[in-house]
Design a protein around this nucleic acid. Structure first.
Lengths: 113, 113
DNA sequence: TTATTAAGCTGTGAAGTCCAAACTATCGGA
DNA sequence: TCCGATAGTTTGGACTTCACAGCTTAATAA
């Protein structure tokens, strides 16, 4: 029932001003969701391989933020060398599915230039 | 045919490294597409009303970038005071439709916290 | 006559975000 | 003894975004 957005003559509703949309509108946030959705469980190094333009610190920050939004989980295994696996939560998977048509279209469009 | 993403055992494909995804991953970019999609034709002031947290300069930059990606058009009317109307291109509308399920879900989720 | 109003921006310096590169810890193998 | 492997954190600098002021022009208001 709280869908975007207000109708033409209504006052603005600001339904877009959410923390989650803020997080998703940061560099590589959608990319991370997409890569995890496609390859989970995923380790840090694989994310780096798939998103070579992102710095490790940015990747790390994005993962923190997505975890805080409860879109993914971080499983630490107490091994040497350390191993950490990322997986989407149910919410994260739902988001990933809704994001797919967007990213597919972007990839297609890029291809047909 | 160039959809996300490579399969599990393949090398990374970097299909996500596109200019458009870069632009969409900036602050308020998806918001702008969504507001224009919902209210077009749209004037600058209406965008400001709907996205009060965005500065005018950021809004202006986002509009430039979306125009450069050919997702929206800017129609200048030679009047005093000046009037400019923004509308989505066909590509912009396609993107807007694919973005809707994402933003609807975000709005819903926010509501049910 | 002067001031005010409107819209759609652009310009400014400060604050926040992202960058590459170097560094952390630990253990097994050379 | 030093290297490589993993998953990050730290650092100082570059790029983005911020709030706020100013620009344009013509019609009105004081």
């Amino acid at each position: 029932m709280s869908q975007i957005c207000c109708d033409a003559d209504e006052p603005p509703c600001h339904c877009l001003a959410t923390d989650l949309l803020d997080v998703l509108g940061r560099k590589y946030a959608m990319d991370v969701v997409c890569v995890v959705a496609h390859h989970e469980p995923v380790r840090f190094g694989l994310l780096e391989d798939h998103l070579p333009d992102a710095s490790t610190s940015t990747l790390s920050t994005r993962l923190d933020e997505l975890e805080a939004e409860e879109l993914l989980t971080r499983e630490r295994y107490d091994e040497i060398p350390p191993r950490v696996e990322y997986e989407l939560t149910d919410d994260g998977r739902e988001l990933g599915e809704r994001l797919r048509p967007v990213l597919d279209w972007i990839a297609e469009r890029e291809n047909s230039d």
